[in-house]
Design a protein around this nucleic acid. Structure first.
Lengths: 334, 334
DNA sequence: CCCGAGAACTAAAAGGTTTTCGGAAACGTA
DNA sequence: TACGTTTCCGAAAACCTTTTAGTTCTCGGG
């Protein structure tokens, strides 16, 4: 804590020039003599002058600040997206205002107003799931892009992981290993992520002319459900040689229960997870082969497109970002 | 996206008053006739006027914005602190600017300058561990409080979890259950958290006139290490009847390996973790008794004290926030 | 009808910066 | 010397809001 804030006026006085000249010198403008510029720069350094971003923003109408609105408590999936965005912005001297609406629409409106009154240049809305969410962009004076959870308005700009493609990739991996009796254990049906991943499985199996082993088992995103499903499945479909799980939590539970039932993974049973949540996927035994949604890249891309939109080059529509497969020890040839 | 921004001038014109009157009406000041106020409010609503926070901040010198500087990628521990802070601020119409320095001192300085140039009213620095970190507060024009990771300058305001107390609480619980041969498996020695928790253990044992079973096993914060330590410990100290683990990850690995070695938890062996990281502590079998550091409360408290410091009522020193014990199934009477 | 008091309103300044435009100085050319 | 051209610098406006210090209006009492 220290004294009064130093303004460009102080710098100008110390350098013995007008504030106009000081401004030009500090901003690298042309029409100022080299020696003068040096004097100003020296004065600024001596006073450790920091231009007032408020004044600058008031004048230019640009705050170089964006709002990051998360709909649910910055969760599992929000974090990497946020990090990626922060990364992209950080590079360009942008600042990020973080607002967490806690899943409450009222609070969301409130935060939205707060962001607008602070004159952010743009807003990223980070969803808690890949289910489409109500658009906030109607009649907003700034561009908005949606990350992870898309807007329900197709005119908006949204970035989501390509879960269908990611799931297909996982299943193709299993098929390439010679697995043919593939089962699917996943989360609740009301999650679009769960439905999309089941759809990717269906597509990959159909392309290979292969039947799914048993019905898809819908449950919750928990380890407990994975264990439970393993018990049911190993009983009902003893011939299964591979399981595609809708999340790493489910997969972790599944391999644990399978091991306890004496099934070797990946020998008897290849298992694939989803999310690449490292605390789980690398700590199970064996470590999980899993699908990584590249969430940080997704966040970074969303941020870059927000930049573009701020510059008036918007790219409407839902953009699906490719996933990639992380191969560990839970899958191997039959 | 829509047209030009509406200013108080537009509102005043529409209401047929001067901007001074409009301002007073909007801010609930006294000397304006009720009917006039109504007209202004109606006009503001019709134009959906949002006061420009930049202009307001420029004038008042208060931006109602705080900076949140995290030293490491908003991690495991940063999140809850951040959430708590955001919560406390949200209530008071404050906005939060999030900066992630990625553990890089240069980047930290950069973010710090950015925050100051944006004229934040205060800054919270969130550490990645409880190890003291270099102070950033020297000669800053705004107050700073440190959360989770304390500043190395005792003049600064820091809030940290009371790990010594938390560990003692855990061990007292084990003692109350009649356990007497208590071992300790924890993370790397260069973590103050690990050292503090070992110290809490020592104090509690000493107070009970009890000896620790074996030496403290220092390792890493991983499940893998927990499993490994379990194998070593059960071999070397077969008489152990309780284990205090330095983190839930270690504890999760420990109980898993113990189960596999045929030791029943909590029957043969009571196990306590630390952190209450729910994805682990509730999903292990049995679910883990563990110490919760109340990180959200810690964040909220730090935020409230930042408010106080902004109002000139600072409270220097390192404040230790109490932890609490979450009792689940991994502990029971001997 | 005038006066005075109080209520209601407005003009103007302030906050810090950038930008535009006009002016001054320096210099070269006729 | 007179004039034109560059080069460099400074005054002032603009951004939007709040606040201060007036100014006008209203109305009751004399």
């Amino acid at each position: 804590m220290a004294g009064r804030r130093v303004t460009i006026n102080d710098v100008a006085s110390l350098a013995g020039v007008s504030i106009a000249t000081a401004s030009k010198a500090l901003n690298g403008r042309q029409d100022v003599r080299a020696s003068t510029r040096e004097r100003v720069l020296a004065a600024a350094a001596e006073l450790s002058f920091q231009p007032n971003a408020l004044a600058r923003g008031l004048l230019s109408g640009q705050t170089r600040t964006v709002g990051l609105l998360t709909s649910d408590s910055v969760g599992r999936f929000g974090i990497p997206v946020l990090l990626g965005a922060e990364d992209a912005f950080g590079a360009g001297e942008m600042a990020v205002m973080l607002c967490d609406a806690r899943g409450d629409a009222i609070r969301e409106q409130h935060h939205l107003r707060a962001l607008l009154s602070r004159r952010v240049d743009g807003i990223i809305v980070v969803g808690e799931s890949t289910n489409p969410r109500p658009s906030v962009s109607k009649d907003l004076p700034v561009p908005v892009v949606y990350a992870y959870g898309p807007s329900d308005d197709p005119e908006d700009v949204s970035f989501v992981p390509d879960d269908v493609g990611g799931a297909a990739m996982a299943v193709e991996h299993l098929l390439a290993l010679g697995r043919r009796r593939i089962a699917h254990v996943t989360g609740p049906r009301h999650y679009k992520a769960a439905r999309d991943r089941a759809e990717g499985l269906r597509i990959a199996l159909e392309a290979a002319g292969c039947e799914q082993a048993g019905e898809t088992l819908w449950g919750s995103w928990s380890q407990r459900w994975g264990r439970h499903a393993a018990e049911m499945l190993l009983m009902a479909e003893p011939g299964v040689d591979a399981v595609f799980c809708g999340s790493d939590q489910v997969a972790a539970g599944f391999v644990e229960a399978a091991r306890e039932r004496g099934r070797s993974v990946p020998g008897d049973l290849a298992v694939i997870g989803y999310d690449n949540w490292e605390v789980l996927s690398t700590e199970t035994r064996p470590a999980l082969t899993t699908v990584d949604m590249n969430l940080e890249l997704l966040g970074r891309t969303a941020a870059q497109h927000l930049f573009a939109a701020i510059d008036g080059r918007a790219t409407p529509g839902v953009h699906r970002m490719p996933c990639h497969l992380v191969i560990r020890d839970s899958t191997a040839a039959a």
